[in-house]
Design a binder for these strands. Structure first.
Lengths: 111, 111
DNA sequence: CCACGGTACTTGGCCATACATAGTACTTTT
DNA sequence: AAAAGTACTATGTATGGCCAAGTACCGTGG
């Protein structure tokens, strides 16, 4: 029970939401996502991102195609499936509710 | 990988934050917290709340005293320790950052 | 005096995910 | 061909939310 753990726990699930969102905006591959997540100060490492993408793909929320790169091995470019879009919608609702609920609790002043 | 799982994952850690916040406002016991959480639509069950309170207590963030009840067994009334207050401050920062980061990502429109 | 229902709290096991770490495969450079 | 760099994969650990069952205590009615 230390701060870091709790911070990690807070991130759980939200990452999935953010990644689906990033992909919803167009074809991207893993390093693109890492860049964007890092820019938003949502620290993520490879070892977290890749397994997550695999899970999402296996769940039918994502699909990808290999595209050749000029500098290095080919890359997997991901896009959302229909199922993925619907899932993202639901997640958006969930997230909004969660933020709202949290605000309801934390905005109350000391009695 | 279904919606419910992700929703559960999203809740992780946030619950801890909310509960610390509720306790920070004054002495409360478990059922009080459940009522407030439920009112905010942050669904929680006993089996989640009690272990969490025990963890927080063992970590030195909370303390409690038994107070007799007129209708039933005595209750544990919780309060925050100094350590708990400091922890809550940090969590507040973390939460605010997380919300901000998420907003940065999800507010971008489709390219 | 004891059985009962309600309230408050406890415990053990399950599962999913973030992370660390190490490893594979392909491409370009030298 | 060897080295360096990029992209992706695999394995094991720890944590926390949840379910479900169980314990303990109180007041009331037979």
């Amino acid at each position: 029970m230390n701060l870091e753990n709790t911070q990690v726990q807070m991130r759980k699930g939200i990452l999935e939401y953010c990644i689906l969102h990033i992909i919803s905006r167009g074809e991207v591959y893993a390093s693109d996502m890492l860049d964007e997540l890092t820019a938003a100060k949502m620290i993520v490492v490879e070892g977290t991102l890749y397994p997550l993408l695999t899970r999402l793909k296996n769940a039918g929320l994502l699909e990808y195609k290999w595209i050749e790169s000029k500098s290095g091995p080919p890359r997997k470019y991901y896009t959302l499936t229909d199922k993925g879009s619907k899932f993202l919608e639901k997640l958006t609702e969930t997230w909004d509710e969660l933020v709202h609920s949290t605000q309801m609790i934390t905005s109350k002043s000391n009695a």
